Simulated scan of single mutants.
Amino acid sequence: MKEFRLIELPKINDVRGNLTFLENNAQIPFKIQRVFWTYDVSGGEIRGGHAFFKQHELIIALSGSFDVVVTDKAGNETKISLNRSYYGLLIPAKTWRHMENFSTNSLGLHVSSEKFDENDYIRNFEQYQILN
């Protein structure tokens, strides 16, 4: 993966309720190593604010909505609103981002290519800017 991109996940429509799924190497270009979710985020709070050296990630708003703001090394921002559970944002390694504008009761699912490793985090934007 070279650039972040929004992907549409499979959606099976049914009068009883819809179903969406994802599978390794089908909808996402990496093997799933970790899954976590964000929830109960208070109004006005920001989550994230970092990049990863190795980890690729897929972020899905399972319920409610929030914005993912991707910032390039020059400081230019692109805002992607996630508000449908059948869309996900693929974010490659070395991509600076944060999440904001959480709706009440929003639930964000994060699917990652790596197990948790604090040393994989880039938490300083100036350090991020000088990466290759």
Rank of each mutant, 00 (worst) to 15 (best):
N76V: 11
Y128N: 06
L19H: 15
K79Q: 06
E23L: 13
Q129P: 03
D40R: 14
L90G: 01
S85F: 08
P92G: 00
D14C: 10
T38Q: 13
G88H: 08
V70S: 01
L62N: 15
S81I: 12
L19A: 13
G49P: 02
F21H: 08
H56E: 09
N18C: 12
L9S: 05
N124K: 04
P29A: 14
E45Y: 01
H110Q: 07
E100Q: 12
S106V: 02
Q129H: 01
V68N: 05
I130L: 10
K2A: 07
F21Y: 05
L6R: 15
H110G: 10
D117A: 10
E57T: 08
G17H: 12
Y121K: 09
Y128I: 04
A51P: 03
H56M: 09
E126F: 13
K2F: 03
G64E: 03
E118C: 15
S85T: 05
D120Q: 10
A26H: 09
S85L: 05
V41G: 00
E77L: 09
Q127G: 08
Y121G: 04
K115G: 13
S63H: 10
I7W: 08
N105W: 10
Y87F: 13
V68G: 03
F36M: 04
S113I: 02
R5L: 02
M99T: 05
I32F: 11
R34F: 00
Q27N: 02
R16S: 13
V70W: 03
H98K: 10
I59Q: 13
Q129V: 13
S113G: 03
L109W: 15
H50L: 11
E118L: 14
A74T: 10
I80K: 02
A74W: 09
E23H: 04
M99I: 03
N24C: 07
Q127P: 07
I122V: 13
M1N: 13
F36N: 11
W37F: 12
V68D: 05
D67L: 01
L58G: 11
K79H: 04
V15P: 11
T71A: 02
L58D: 09
T20H: 07
H98N: 06
E77M: 10
H56A: 15
R123F: 00
I130C: 12
E8G: 08
G75R: 08
S42T: 01
K2T: 10
E57V: 07
L82G: 00
A74R: 15
H56Q: 07
T78N: 15
I46A: 11
G108I: 00
M99W: 03
P92D: 02
A26C: 04
L131F: 07
M99A: 06
